[in-house]
Write a protein that binds this DNA or RNA. Sequence first.
DNA 1: ACCCCTCTTCAAAACGTTTTAATCTGTCGC
DNA 2: GCGACAGATTAAAACGTTTTGAAGAGGGGT
Lengths: 333, 333
Amino acid sequence: MAMVSIKDVAARAGVSPGTVSNVLNRPAKVAQATRERVEAAIRELGFVRHGSASTLRAGHSRTIGLSVIDIGNPFFTEVAAGVEDVASELGYAVILGNSAGSPDKEERNLGVLAEQRVRGVLITPSGEDPARLDRLRERGISVVLVDHPAHRPDQCAVAVDDVAGGRAAVRHLLARGGNGVAYVTGPLTIRQCAERRRGAAEALTAAGLDPASLRLVGAAAMTARAGEQAAADLMADGLPEAVFCANDLLALGVLRALLRAGVRVPDDVALMGYDDIEFAAASAVSLSSMRQPTYQLGRIATELLLDECDNPAEHAHQHIMFQPELVARESTQ
Amino acid sequence: MAMVSIKDVAARAGVSPGTVSNVLNRPAKVAQATRERVEAAIRELGFVRHGSASTLRAGHSRTIGLSVIDIGNPFFTEVAAGVEDVASELGYAVILGNSAGSPDKEERNLGVLAEQRVRGVLITPSGEDPARLDRLRERGISVVLVDHPAHRPDQCAVAVDDVAGGRAAVRHLLARGGNGVAYVTGPLTIRQCAERRRGAAEALTAAGLDPASLRLVGAAAMTARAGEQAAADLMADGLPEAVFCANDLLALGVLRALLRAGVRVPDDVALMGYDDIEFAAASAVSLSSMRQPTYQLGRIATELLLDECDNPAEHAHQHIMFQPELVARESTQ
DNA sequence: ACCCCTCTTCAAAACGTTTTAATCTGTCGC
DNA sequence: GCGACAGATTAAAACGTTTTGAAGAGGGGT
């Protein structure tokens, strides 16, 4: 309540407000004796800098925005952990936005971030509309894409090769022998879903099979619950010998529904997920999956963003593409 | 880049800046014709209010802080989802802080929140030091405790009865027959760990057993990895017939290590977790657990916080205590 | 003595909004 | 027609910082 400002500190230390500001922002510029006097005053008065005033005057804040598609998905949680760690190390605050798959909510969240004058935004875009991101850039807010390739050259992006991932996953399923592969996927407007499908189709072609034979099973969301529903659809139309799911949550849902229906995994049906979330290894039948460097994704994206903000002059935009790694477990034995 | 301010809007609409501010903040106060003119100008110029300027002048922001112990734990993720939903509905931004179990990092995060002049803070405190929270309150920042009982009467808190939960869990384990119960726990400085232990001891007493017979197995963190380590300790000293873990992540780690060592669950050892995270039901041996209304915890805490902020006059502080619910699955069959 | 440097500190002007008290319209009651 | 009054708008003063250009102090070289 007793709002103590830079002026109070200045008065107490017997200097001008400008000097206090210098102590805060460029301590080297002020004589040691003065600095110590000011620091003492700060401590004694319990002064805390008013971030908004600072932002207003300096023209930029020390916050970044993080917009993810589903905070309930451990994939994004791990990304967020990486982001939070780096931001926290560098004294930045992270504003979290969960678009929950809805482009509307994403739009609203970006609006909030724009109002807050965040320094930059890390986003896994849910739609394919780069325009609104460009609008942020016009406002001087840097944008780094996470788990998504760059829309444009003058932009950083950190992604994982989803086509290669889809290809590797289905190649692995085919290697077991058998044929008839189903792909359980979220909305194909989600880039990850579409690209993993493309990779899956390529794997079929490479094996001399008709890529059109890839059986598509749509799920309304990329959650375990939606996976259970998808498994019902799958069983209703006759089970394939192999199922590739667009992510682990779907796969865990499919797995659960199959087991409950008495289907044996992997004997009757082989199953693959994607993301290799921590829980994939612990599931009823441990789940084969495609591992991605999630935590690193978050860390590197944040480092790129803050580098772009802190030295825009020397900053070189980077497009980083990781390769996913196949992790074979019981579900495809 | 072309920073358009309230003045530009005012000029374009042919009114004063004050009127634009009124359109933004109390549209009822301004004549309809003027309002429409201003709104048009806002749209045409793509004006976005400068949150920091607004915060500076108005004296309060539209952001809240959320400080959790482990963003990697699905328990907190669900809480965060509830928080984010409510905040987003009411136009508030959420600043995320992950203390990762370290009081130091928690302290640093609270510092950042204080600088940002957040309206209020939702926190699951990691230590037992209420003093620093009081310091926030002195600065006019409301605090609501999440998954933690209130420190003081003039404060909101939303919690779940951990003693009852621990009691129910161990009662359930004892009901299976057998005896010798181990409790795998994170640091007992974490309140949840301590209280669940107390409940566990009470259950032993109630069954006519010596509460001191509860075998404590410490884990360095509340993660699956730490759980695996704990299982090793457990096996080294001779397996008990029942194991109660302070949360599901620990339990999943214990489960994995036991299965790998050829121990049969539940035949050789019965196992219970806590939190009933989504993945507890899907694990190799589905995990019995104590379910908590996590998403609701986040929602209600946020509603309380924002009510306290938006009408401090009528706000009545509340201490809400939920009861956890036992979910029995294979691991205790 | 004088000038020229460097090292510190300072005063004052922003930054974009909200809010207060005052001004300016009409309108209504009489 | 006059005064009063409500409603709509405005001008101007904050809010707490950062930053800029200038002033002051102390030394060294001539």
